[in-house]
Design a protein around this nucleic acid. Structure first.
Lengths: 237, 237
DNA sequence: ATTGAAAATGTAAATATGACATTTACATTT
DNA sequence: AAATGTAAATGTCATATTTACATTTTCAAT
């Protein structure tokens, strides 16, 4: 019986296991994705998600962290598993199951640390180049997931610098959901969550009046990860 | 360059890929899980999720369907990927990445078709036995995901027979969310979605008065998969 | 005919939402 | 130093939604 059972394991075909990262960023206007150029001659014009292989002693989460860090230099990004993609023909070279994670990073902190060994660039999610394998499908799912999540939880802040203005925050939500939001209602709703601390400083340079800076109340953020349930009116998911 | 690139593939260690199914059912009172006894002497008292191996030419979804059908006999269950679990030590026999799916089935249709080759039984989710490997974690995540999803989409119906009463439906939601809901408010809210068609028949036998049966308006259901956004007051996720 | 048990139903107060326009701050220009 | 232009900040009212809560109805069983 025990033999038979171990036999079961021996009989199975094994797969390669890869990880792919959908890395979102926000530049104040557009929601963007960080893509890399594949270092293969035959694919020299194809962009792809940053990816890598699962190492023998790694968890999936750790592998994904390692891979995102290799490119961005950042080690504290928001990372969430999107799911496994396993179509038998998704990678024409060899059967590979890929586990996709999406990451939210704020672009300024990235700019300092980026690893220039990779040929990487930001693309607006509304206008992406052709992508390798099934990466387009991964990106579509990730966009949906981000909408879903951001509609109910305050994860948008992960895409902003530590100090940000209400207009910036609103731009971000408008980019994620592809809608226009009323300024007055937005500010009322967002401030009523008590998640934000208004600072004395203003953002200078962009507008003449200048907008007040805010930062997240870390305490509240932890307590109130559900603060946005019902945040976006009729989020369309 | 091209050689080097194929070399990359050759160097990677391969993993076994398994699938595990979190199969939810509802008996009118309790939310339950369908578990199987592991057919291995050393584990003769351990229950586990129904699982299986990924076949060489299968998608993950198809494999999961096949495995759920092998046990339940049902081929049209609601199935959704929960995610991949890949701790290097999760399976002590050999490194295995498992992709978990959760399934919603209605118990009566299952009872006709169940495959008795498996030693399977229903357990209330509130009182589960010890489970194999990391299956407990999978179950916890699946419970959360079911809450999340059921709070915003009308998937609860997948757990009920074709014809059901409002009290049954309410019991289901109370079981999923572990809360008491006011009868009057529940019925008003649910009927306002226009997802239900009231039938002339009543359910007999359970109460003296008998409760009217309803069925899903399939048309509306497809159109209005978001009908429940904001359905459960303050769903706690 | 009476009883018991669950099903069905309505209203009013509080709260949240959505639509909408004016004023304020300040850097730049004259 | 006054005028101008641009984006930021702010408030109200009508409507819709949510919540809390108790009585009546139905019908099988006695």
């Amino acid at each position: 019986m025990k033999i038979n059972f171990l036999e079961q394991y021996r009989l199975q075909t094994k797969c390669l296991v890869a990880l792919d990262s959908i890395i979102f960023g926000f530049d104040g206007t557009d929601l963007k994705l960080l893509l890399v150029k594949r270092g293969v001659e035959s694919d020299h014009d194809t962009w792809s998600l940053m990816g890598g292989w699962l190492a023998p002693d790694e968890t999936l989460e750790k592998a994904s962290q390692r891979i995102v860090q290799a490119l961005t230099g950042l080690d504290d990004v928001y990372l969430e598993q999107l799911g496994a993609f396993g179509d038998p023909l998704r990678d024409p070279v060899e059967r590979t199951v890929s586990v996709a994670y999406f990451a939210l990073i704020n672009v300024p902190s990235y700019e300092d640390k980026i690893n220039h060994d990779f040929d990487a660039d930001w693309f607006p999610v509304r206008d992406l180049p052709e992508l390798l394998f099934d990466h387009k499908e991964m990106v579509e799912q990730a966009k949906e997931r981000l909408k879903y999540k951001a509609a109910f939880h305050p994860i948008g802040f992960e895409l902003l610098p530590e100090k940000f203005t209400l207009p910036q925050l609103q731009n971000l939500y408008e980019a994620i959901f592809g809608v226009k939001i009323d300024k007055r209602n937005f500010s009322r709703k967002i401030l009523s969550t008590n998640l934000l601390i208004k600072l004395k400083e203003k953002q200078k340079g962009f507008s003449k009046k200048g907008a007040f800076l805010y930062q997240l109340d870390a305490e509240q953020y932890k307590k109130d990860f559900n603060a946005f349930l019902n945040f976006i009116p009729n989020p369309d998911m």
